[in-house]
Nucleic acid binder design. Structure first.
Lengths: 396, 396
DNA sequence: CTGATTTTGTTGATTACGAAAACAAAAAAT
DNA sequence: ATTTTTTGTTTTCGTAATCAACAAAATCAG
């Protein structure tokens, strides 16, 4: 509270806060649930018919949504007007990786309208990547045309992100340290830029559009070269004080002295390693899908030893998360999907052994649904979140 | 969202929601910060002078607060009226343990107005404890007089609590399984009853009134016979989907097969054990304070071996929590206080070794301030939270 | 095909509540 | 004693949700 004494953050609600809030929730529902009738919006929000009418009209005027006449019979009574999110409001999703850059335009309706992908040699300096991003954004804008409004730019960063000011604290693969990426991109493009850790971005996407849709308490674990996580507690994404939280891979679960990519010993990331699986299967560079096919086809003892060790470690970690978070659902993405399908029984049994039964009983374990789309949808969501919070303030 | 489609929970805000919210925040500020001037309330909430005036008057009429003329010089200008929480609005705090029962009346102003404590043999059935609680509550009410209004009853349970319906899922020490304690107490007393896990209750108290005051991201760890935890993330207490979350003691951090009180192996609770410390010091039944004095006075190797092992385990666990939650502050209570003071250096060094530096740098570690008062204040807070959420609806 | 029923959209009047402005009050500063 | 500064009070105003009444568009019953 003392902070508030100084910063004088507004705790009270004024007149316009109500309109702001209602506008925001209506737009949010349209965004998440897709085309929806006015009457259903009324049911969901508890607002009066006349109020919904005014709100939707305002959103229409802002260009955020459009209305279409009733499509088909929905039962008794006068058919309700359908409200849909506009495809002409888009967010730019950016995903920089070691050797490639993906830039996409995602509409408020949830479609990936356009996707550009370029590769470059590892070690390419940030400045070049920023310039390249700006170029691709301009290309997207040109292709999409004048009448498309840009909500902002969302970036999924494979590393630790200071959420408040959009600085990449550390992205080991890319060799970035304290890079003010948001500011750099903002200066280059003139658009508002939002950064977040890639796993958290993926978590949010799965929660809104994917396997964790409709759940309010979610654990998301994603295995790529490293191992990242995301948590949704009580309907809101957990980030910690500065945005460095949710490092679920860097949690020590064993006495082993084997270090992970961040130098921490005995962590889940140090045991459940994609490259060990790939090596055991004697594969080269493979996609997650190819890895999965190869793993499920191979039942040799040597592969089983590696997989079992990783599954057991994963189970132990999941047990910890269940005890800590009491989630409704656990979502496994990346190569962790493959571990799940390799021996689901073993994983779930291990989870049961390590978790308190009260929390264990209720939780379900699923694999991610969105695949590579999750990063695009989730990154765009970073920008849309700001738009949704203040729809009235948006001018495009 | 699908849930909402069925339950039709109100997402939109109506006319009166604003008043409700503002009334709530003003009362909340008075409750937390103690006597405060009207003008400061205006600064903190961002509300207009006239609005504050009306709100405070309404709270006054409800008997929640009272106003007093300016006490002393506070600078230039007309002195502002002081607003204080009423001492005549109280919550009943109940804390049942293995062999004793504490029942207290805590005022909205934060004073423990009265405290009753009785002992009974271990194994006393729940029904008896409920009856005894009701008797003590009646005694408190009689002593306090007619003009005191009761906001409700808050119970700190040493076990797992299903937060939604106030059922004790499992309280190992007390031998309770699926006990509908809230309902039982409600029927016996006619008052609204709220339950929560004891560590979470303590966490909330430390956050509002104690060592974690003014922090929004808190880890709280409390060591008694067992080891419990509490987490505040982004200003709200974490409970998980059903209320079983935050079992920070039951997190596996080692390959050891030593089971804890819940049968889980290699957890923090299985290593950091109060009774091992007590045994090493060759003590009998001691209070936390006595234990601390004895521990700090004894620098023998045998004691050091036990203490160091426990400190190292604690450090490893704390490192995990830091990586997961990126908190601003860690608060250690119960006998964990003693471990901290025994070798602070070792603990902090161990923490640094196991945590990512980005999160590690910002976090501070402190010991709990409230001692045994934390459970009383925190339990009362359970009832006050409901009161604060809907001050207008309260009739006493 | 016709009329009753049901649900939804529309419109205007009503109500609630915070903001703003003008004025009064109570202190310190000059 | 006068000015300045801050706060409390009162009145007026604007905004936004609600309510009631009516119209519109479908299904249902015969």
């Amino acid at each position: 509270m003392k902070q508030n004494l100084e910063t004088a953050k507004k705790l009270g609600q004024g007149r316009d806060a109500v309109r702001q809030h209602n506008l925001s929730t209506v737009l949010g529902l349209v965004h998440q649930l897709g085309p929806i009738s006015r009457s259903k919006l009324g049911q969901l929000t508890g607002l009066n018919r006349s109020t919904i009418s005014i709100l939707v009209e305002e959103l229409n005027n802002l260009g955020m949504v459009f209305e279409s006449e009733s499509t088909a019979r929905e039962g008794l009574g006068r058919p309700s007007i359908q409200v849909s999110a506009s495809s002409n409001v888009v967010a730019i999703a950016i995903h920089p990786e070691l050797d490639f850059l993906a830039v996409a335009a995602v509409s408020l309706a949830g479609e990936v309208r356009q996707l550009e992908r370029v590769t470059y040699p590892p070690g390419t300096p940030v400045q070049s990547i920023v310039k390249e991003s700006a170029r691709l954004i301009q290309k997207l804008r040109d292709d999409l045309g004048q009448h498309v409004k840009i909500a902002g730019v969302g970036v999924a960063v494979p590393g630790q992100v200071r959420f408040g000011d959009g600085v990449v604290r550390l992205a080991p693969h890319l060799g970035w340290v304290e890079v003010p990426l948001a500011k750099m991109l903002q200066q280059e493009t003139g658009l508002p830029v939002y950064l977040d850790n890639d796993a958290m971005v993926g978590c949010n996407a799965e929660r809104i559009f994917g396997a964790a849709r409709n759940f309010n308490d979610v654990i998301y674990l994603w295995g790529g070269s490293g191992l990242g996580g995301g948590v949704v507690a009580n309907g809101v994404q957990l980030r910690g004080a500065t945005g460095y939280g949710c490092e679920l891979g860097h949690v020590r679960i064993s006495d082993s002295e084997q270090p992970d990519y961040s130098g921490l010993a005995g962590t889940l990331e140090s045991i459940a390693r994609r490259e060990d699986l790939v090596a055991a299967l004697e594969l080269g560079t493979v996609s997650d899908e190819e890895l999965e096919v190869a793993l499920l086809a191979n039942r040799s003892d040597s592969v089983a030893a590696v997989a079992h060790r990783q599954i057991d470690a994963l189970a132990r970690a999941l047990g910890n998360y269940v005890n800590i978070f009491n989630p409704e659902i656990i979502v496994l993405g990346g190569f962790l999907r493959s571990l799940f399908w390799y021996d689901q029984e073993r994983l779930l049994q291990g989870l049961s052994n390590g978790a308190l039964s009260a929390s264990r009983e209720a939780v379900i374990v699923r694999t991610a649904e969105l695949g590579s789309r999750s990063l695009l949808l989730g990154s765009a969501e970073l920008a849309f979140e700001q738009l949704l919070a203040h729809p009235g303030a948006f001018t495009g």
